[in-house]
């Protein structure tokens, strides 16, 4: 049943899955200044632990979103490539999902997101090994939050403990809150009514979040208006839901 990736051309992969996911993000690298506001906002919203200097040095920092920058050329013709915020791409066909022996990383049929179910996770880290974007982070320890720091924890998000894999959720708690509110008021969720923590904080407005299956939404409009959007590692057939605009 499963064809190997080399057997499939991108178009076939696209046909086999759904073309557009439900939620998507557009990131404009031309205006991203790398200021880290999104990283801080994400950490504050999602109760992400800080790990300290030593663990950070081992690459164990828990950022759900990081800003990549690369160098091109040598001095004096050196150039910093456009900053590239990288988070879970919420793949339509996610490489992390089939490798989880505990079914802890599963695809949400309802929201079309990749879920990480913390109570199922047993910490095999297969998913992180198989993630081509390297966006999953693992709780190597029970990282300390001395009192009274826990006061700022967001009650809408589970606090993870040692041995659990975690990653960007597209702020699913905000999705649910908005849906719940809309339902209580007897209406549909309006585009722009809520957004993810990173997009809300971004001083450059480089991140836009919304429904990609709604042609009227701002993300769909942006993707349509500007044709040069790139989806990273699309050739792997992962059907990522984050579109990057690289240059001006």
């Amino acid at each position: 049943m499963m064809a190997t990736l080399s057997d499939l051309k991108i178009s076939e992969v696209k046909l086999s899955g759904k073309e557009a996911g439900k939620w998507g993000m557009v990131i404009d690298q031309d205006i991203c200044t790398g200021c880290q506001a999104c990283v801080a906002a994400c950490a504050m919203e999602n109760n992400i632990s800080f790990v300290g200097e030593e663990d950070a040095g081992y690459g164990r920092s828990m950022h759900w979103i990081r800003i990549e920058r690369f160098w091109e050329g040598e001095y004096p013709e050196v150039k910093m490539t456009p900053n590239q915020p990288m988070m879970c791409q919420q793949c339509g066909q996610a490489p992390c999902e089939p490798v989880c022996p505990a079914f802890a990383t599963v695809h949400s049929m309802a929201e079309e997101l990749n879920l990480q179910v913390y109570n199922r996770c047993v910490g095999t880290r297969y998913c992180a090994n198989n993630c081509p974007y390297q966006v999953r982070s693992f709780n190597w320890r029970d990282y300390e939050r001395p009192e009274p720091l826990p006061n700022q924890l967001n009650p809408d998000v589970t606090v993870r403990r040692r041995g659990i894999m975690e990653k960007c959720t597209f702020c699913i708690q905000r999705i649910h809150r908005a849906q719940d509110q809309a339902k209580a008021e007897g209406r549909e969720v309006v585009d722009g009514e809520f957004t993810t923590a990173c997009a809300q904080a971004c001083p450059a407005s480089a991140i836009t979040f919304g429904r990609t299956d709604d042609p009227a939404s701002l993300v769909s409009q942006l993707m349509k208006r500007r044709s040069h959007g790139v989806k990273h590692l699309e050739e792997l057939g992962t059907l990522p839901n984050v579109t990057y605009f690289k240059g001006g």
């Binding site: 700022q152 967001n154 809300q200 904080a201 001083p203």
Partner: peptide, 23 residues
């Protein structure tokens, strides 16, 4: 308890945005 800071969307200086330090 204060659990999240966001920008004030009506404020003429930052129009709802914040920097990392504000966060």
């Amino acid at each position: 308890r204060a659990i999240k800071t966001e920008g004030n969307a009506n404020h003429p200086l930052n129009l709802g945005k914040t920097c990392a330090r504000g966060q």
